[in-house]
Simulated scan of single mutants.
Amino acid sequence: MIKTIVTHPGGAHKDDFLACAVLLTQAPVAIERRDPTEADLKAPDVAVLDIGHQHDAALCNFDHHQLPRDHVPTCALSLVLQHLGIYQDAREFCSWLEVAEWFDCRGPVDTAEWLGMDRETLGKLNSPLDITILRRFASQTEHKPGEPIWEIMRMIGQDTVDYITTLRTRLDFVAAHAEVWEFENFKALFMPRTAPMPDEASSGLGYHVEKLGLEEEVLALVYPDSRGSGYGMRRFNDDTRMEFTRLDNEDDVHFTHARGFIAKTSSAEIDRLKELVAMAYQPS
């Protein structure tokens, strides 16, 4: 049983922060930001993350800095996710993970080039959420249960693990119930209301479209509205051929976003839903 988590002192990065956050879901213990001792590296009840030049899951050592320079981008978070047996699902479901691996292992210049953008643009994606939380994490040598940053880390870790571990179940549910509607010039994916309903009825629909290989044909997603008895309708991949403001004057449509990417209707009749989706289509 892990009794302590140790990670490096000094500046903090998303990798060590998230690796610690995810590991807190398994061991809600104090995090110490310091250099590990030889005893730490040999003790299975001390998890050493992103420092120590060792990767040995049996001893809870999760560092990547000893890997060869040309090794596939792998960070401490990657190793922790592998240890939990959810890395492959994380790579499939969390598009940000590969970017985090690249950024931590290759740096901002190579990552920006890999993403097809310039370094300056990449820097503009940071926000006070990134800056403040990491700075506060770096400002203390120890974080204990009950303290603000520790509690935030546990929430982030739990949400991340829950998302990864439950999405596979949701995808199986979608595959068992979703229907593909065919229109003259496009298709839509429809998720019927079921009993019981999943917590997030629309979650996983986009992944299912990709699994079916229909990314170029499906333009709209239709799913039960979590706030009422009707349905929500939204663009798939923000395809502007679906313009839901065209439904503004329909009596059973109570919301359309001004940008046209989503609408909500009180109707639950299949024929009417198909009619609304067809009305929202505008050829490019």
Rank of each mutant, 00 (worst) to 15 (best):
R135P: 02
I156A: 09
P128A: 04
I2Q: 00
A27T: 12
R33V: 05
W150G: 01
A76S: 15
D40N: 11
T141M: 09
R91T: 10
T111P: 02
H13E: 04
T141G: 15
S266T: 13
T256L: 01
A19Q: 01
A30M: 13
L273G: 05
K14G: 15
T132V: 14
D238M: 05
Y223N: 07
D130L: 11
Y163C: 00
H13N: 09
V99Q: 09
W114H: 14
P224Q: 11
E184H: 13
H177F: 11
G260Y: 05
A263V: 03
S267F: 04
R33T: 06
R91P: 01
R91S: 04
R69N: 08
T37P: 08
H13V: 06
E179F: 07
L212Y: 06
T166K: 04
V99Y: 13
E215D: 14
I270H: 10
K211N: 07
T141W: 12
G146P: 03
G52T: 15
S95Q: 12
E217D: 15
F236W: 01
Q82N: 11
K3A: 11
G85I: 00
P192Y: 03
V6T: 08
S78Y: 05
M117W: 14
L59F: 13
V22S: 03
T165E: 12
L24Q: 03
I31E: 04
D16V: 12
D271Q: 14
R235Y: 11
V209R: 05
T165Y: 02
Y281R: 05
L167D: 01
M191Q: 08
T160G: 02
L59Y: 11
E120Y: 04
E101Q: 11
G123A: 03
A39R: 09
R34G: 08
L115Q: 07
D63N: 07
C60M: 14
G260A: 04
D172E: 13
G11D: 12
S226N: 09
D50F: 09
I5P: 01
R91W: 00
A220F: 08
R234K: 15
